[in-house]
Amino acid sequence: MEETKQLVETITDGIQDKKGQDIVIADLQKIDGAIAKYFVICQGQSPTQVEAIAESIGDKVREHLHEKPVNVAGLGTDQWIAIDFVDVMVHVFLPEVRKFYDLENLWEDAQLTKIPNIA
């Protein structure tokens, strides 16, 4: 369990390193049939920033925890990149795509933690 929390913290660091914004951590552990223990959702202001955030997450996790994602989807379109670390799913969006899919409210029973933006 501690490893999963460490993974979430490392992912959050990777997002903040590239100035990703509006980070929300959704705790899905009490939800039956959830595909992961946590969702980490954030956004970048441009396709370039979305890709940079995704790369930063991968680099940080590899560097600090010696883990790699089992899958990464959306690279190349850079509107929504999903990074699958099995227990933790990361979603990096452009703002309008994030608003459209509204993942935070899709899992309304999840406990949501909002991380303040770094100025």
Rank of each mutant, 00 (worst) to 15 (best):
E3Q: 13
E3W: 03
T4G: 09
T4R: 04
K5F: 05
Q6D: 07
Q6L: 12
L7R: 09
V8I: 15
V8Q: 08
E9A: 10
T10I: 05
T10R: 02
I11M: 05
T12R: 10
T12I: 14
Q16F: 06
Q16H: 02
Q16N: 09
Q16K: 15
D17L: 15
D17C: 03
K18I: 10
K18P: 02
K18E: 12
K18C: 10
K18Y: 07
Q21A: 15
D22G: 09
D22K: 00
I23C: 06
I23N: 06
I25F: 01
L28I: 01
Q29K: 13
D32H: 10
G33Y: 12
G33M: 11
A34I: 02
A34P: 04
I35G: 05
I35N: 13
A36W: 13
K37C: 10
K37F: 08
I41M: 12
C42F: 03
Q43E: 14
Q45L: 15
Q45F: 06
P47F: 07
T48A: 14
T48S: 06
T48Y: 08
Q49C: 12
V50F: 10
E51P: 01
E51I: 05
A52H: 07
I53H: 08
S56C: 07
I57C: 11
I57H: 07
K60Q: 15
V61T: 04
V61A: 02
R62T: 08
R62N: 11
E63I: 00
H64L: 09
L65W: 05
E67D: 05
E67V: 00
V70G: 01
N71M: 06
V72S: 06
V72G: 03
A73T: 10
A73K: 15
G74M: 11
G74Y: 08
L75Q: 14
L75A: 06
D78W: 01
D78G: 02
D78T: 00
D78M: 01
Q79W: 02
I81A: 13
I81L: 07
I83Q: 03
D84G: 04
V88E: 04
H91L: 03
H91Y: 08
H91Q: 13
H91W: 06
H91A: 12
V92F: 07
V92A: 07
V92T: 13
F93N: 01
F93A: 06
L94F: 09
P95R: 10
P95E: 04
E96I: 10
E96K: 13
V97E: 15
R98H: 05
R98V: 07
K99I: 12
K99T: 15
K99N: 08
Y101P: 02
D102I: 14
D102T: 14
E104N: 07
N105T: 11
L106D: 04
L106M: 12
E108L: 05
D109C: 03
A110R: 02
Q111D: 11
L112M: 14
L112F: 05
T113W: 01
K114M: 11
K114A: 10
I115E: 07
I115N: 05
N117E: 08
N117R: 14
I118D: 12
I118M: 01
A119H: 12
